[in-house]
Computed example of a mutant assay.
Amino acid sequence: MNRYRAYAKVNIFLKITGTRGDYHTLSSRFMRVNSLFDTLWFEPKSTPEFEIRGTFDCDVASNTIYKAYKYLLSDTHSHALSTLMETHAICVDKKIPSFAGLGGGSSDAATYLHMCNDRLDLGLSIDKLALIGANVGADVPFFVYGYESANVSGIGEIVKQVNEPLLDFEVTTPELQISTPAVYRYYREHLFAPISEEESARLEAIPSREILASVNSKEANDLYNAALGCYPELSDKEGWFFSGSGSSFFRVREDNNG
């Protein structure tokens, strides 16, 4: 049975550029974490209900994989897809922590879309998969495209590949589940200070290693102070950067042989 990897990501920088209705627009650099991934595969089962096998902090209806299935089915009306999920469970060996700013749920959803497209020969383009994935969550398109590094803007739907070396990250996640909506709400109410288009374009042109060498964690991520405001128990980590809305921190693992 084919197994697929759903990689984590970190945000090299995350800057708010404005709002669009209830959403915040952003300018961010996403980079894949090659050393941290979930593994997904299909496994035969005997009952027709949609089944996800793995350790999750939510029920099936709230799971991003199930949402991806529903949106994919709604778009394709594929009998083969519904038959697949009546006869097979989707299994997940979960390694990416939840509520951690690493995109685990989004990556799982994107990987599931690719698995179904491949196995059932649905013939959907990568752009179409990204459009379907955007219904599931703002980070899903990045994972659908499979880029190692990309500038992500809008509310996550604009993904532009960045050609640069993939960095080797060390990631640590405190035992603290952070609510992304709560962090964004705190930011909007207390810290709202969107950057200009010019500043956004300037950041998006700088290589990731240079950005990390020139700013501190609070300068890199507009949501860090908001997370600290929501969760005072979230301690500052010197020399580490904050990913997404948290709670994970990351730093570049330097090559000691150099």
Rank of each mutant, 00 (worst) to 15 (best):
N2V: 11
Y4D: 05
A6N: 09
I12Y: 05
I12G: 00
F13I: 03
K15Y: 07
K15H: 11
I16D: 00
T19E: 01
R20Q: 08
R20T: 02
L26F: 09
L26S: 08
S27F: 05
S28G: 05
R32Y: 10
N34H: 15
D38R: 02
L40H: 02
F42I: 01
F42M: 05
P44I: 05
K45A: 05
K45M: 04
E49L: 11
F50N: 00
G54I: 06
F56A: 03
D57M: 06
N63H: 10
T64M: 06
A68V: 08
Y71I: 02
L73E: 15
D75C: 12
D75W: 14
D75L: 13
H77L: 15
A80K: 14
L81K: 13
T83R: 10
L84C: 03
L84R: 08
E86F: 13
T87V: 01
H88G: 05
A89S: 13
A89L: 14
C91L: 08
V92C: 07
D93T: 00
A100Q: 03
L102M: 00
D108G: 00
D108M: 01
A109Y: 07
A109R: 02
Y112E: 06
Y112R: 01
L113V: 04
H114W: 10
H114S: 07
H114D: 01
M115H: 03
N117F: 11
D118K: 03
R119M: 12
R119Y: 13
R119V: 12
L120C: 09
L120E: 07
L120N: 05
D121F: 14
L122R: 06
G123L: 15
I126N: 12
D127A: 13
K128A: 13
L131C: 13
A134F: 15
V136T: 07
G137L: 01
A138F: 02
P141N: 02
P141K: 00
G146I: 14
E148I: 05
S149G: 13
S153M: 05
S153I: 04
E157R: 08
V159F: 08
V159D: 04
Q161F: 04
V162N: 11
V162D: 04
P165A: 11
F169N: 03
P174R: 04
P174Q: 03
E175R: 07
Q177F: 12
I178W: 02
S179I: 07
T180C: 12
P181Q: 05
Y184S: 02
Y184Q: 00
Y187G: 06
R188A: 09
P194F: 04
S196M: 07
E197W: 01
S200I: 12
A205F: 13
A205Y: 12
P207K: 12
A213H: 14
E219H: 09
Y224I: 09
Y224G: 10
N225H: 13
A227F: 06
A227I: 01
Y231H: 10
Y231D: 01
F241S: 04
G246T: 01
G246Q: 00
S247W: 10
S248P: 06
S248E: 11
R251T: 14
V252H: 06
E254T: 13
E254R: 07
D255P: 07
N256Y: 13
N257T: 15
